[in-house]
């Protein structure tokens, strides 16, 4: 049964994830938490690992979650599920609808989707900020500031904005994660 759910969940994630990379982060978070496959902390760790290894984040997440839930077969099923929708859609477009992306209706729908995806990514960042730094998950939780996490957050934001201002290119994820790991060891050990 777990294979069926893994396949279906990642099929759904693959089918509605527009905008690449973090576009599907809110959906992955919801699905994984509601099935009880991971806790929020584990999810954040998995994202860190997916981000610092080669390959698309969605595929990495699928493999990782599949493997943690149901071993090698689970990893295969989840990865296959996340790839299948985009494979079929692209095949369809490449074979028949070469001009499909130029239809005004398709573009109008995509124009509607883009700001929603941006909102979803920013909203997820807000939720995760609240749960990691203020320990607030629902409205009933009292605010319990984790000042160490706050320090890490502040240093990371300052250093990455300073880097992108001076170097005129974004701070890439791996040095950022390394920096945050080093600060974690210094502060929490």
């Amino acid at each position: 049964m777990i294979f069926f759910w893994l396949f279906l969940t990642f099929l759904k994630i693959g089918a509605v994830s527009f905008g690449g990379g973090y576009g599907m982060i809110s959906l992955i978070r919801e699905e994984v938490l509601s099935h009880g496959w991971l806790t929020e902390e584990q999810l954040l760790r998995f994202i860190a690992v997916s981000e610092s290894t080669p390959g698309p984040i969605a595929v990495n997440m699928a493999t990782f979650i599949g493997s943690s839930q149901a071993g090698s077969a689970g990893a295969l099923v989840a990865t296959f599920g996340v790839i299948l929708p985009s494979f079929l859609v692209i095949l369809l477009i490449a074979a028949f609808l070469k001009k499909g992306m130029k239809y005004a209706g398709v573009r109008a729908a995509l124009n509607g989707i883009r700001p929603v995806i941006t909102g979803l990514v920013l909203g997820t960042a807000g939720i995760l900020f609240l749960s990691t730094i203020a320990n607030v998950q629902t409205i009933h939780d009292s605010v319990l500031l984790d000042w160490k996490a706050g320090i890490v957050f502040a240093i990371l934001v300052v250093s990455s904005t300073a880097y992108s201002k001076f170097r005129r290119k974004p701070f890439s994820p791996i040095p950022l994660l390394l920096l945050s790991g080093i600060m974690g060891i210094l502060l929490y050990l």
Partner: peptide, 20 residues
């Protein structure tokens, strides 16, 4: 485990900057 507590915050920053 200690490093991962820092990295969790790092991931939040990554998601935030992707959104921005």
């Amino acid at each position: 485990a200690a490093a991962f507590r820092g990295i969790q915050v790092g991931v939040v920053v990554l998601i935030l900057s992707a959104g921005l």
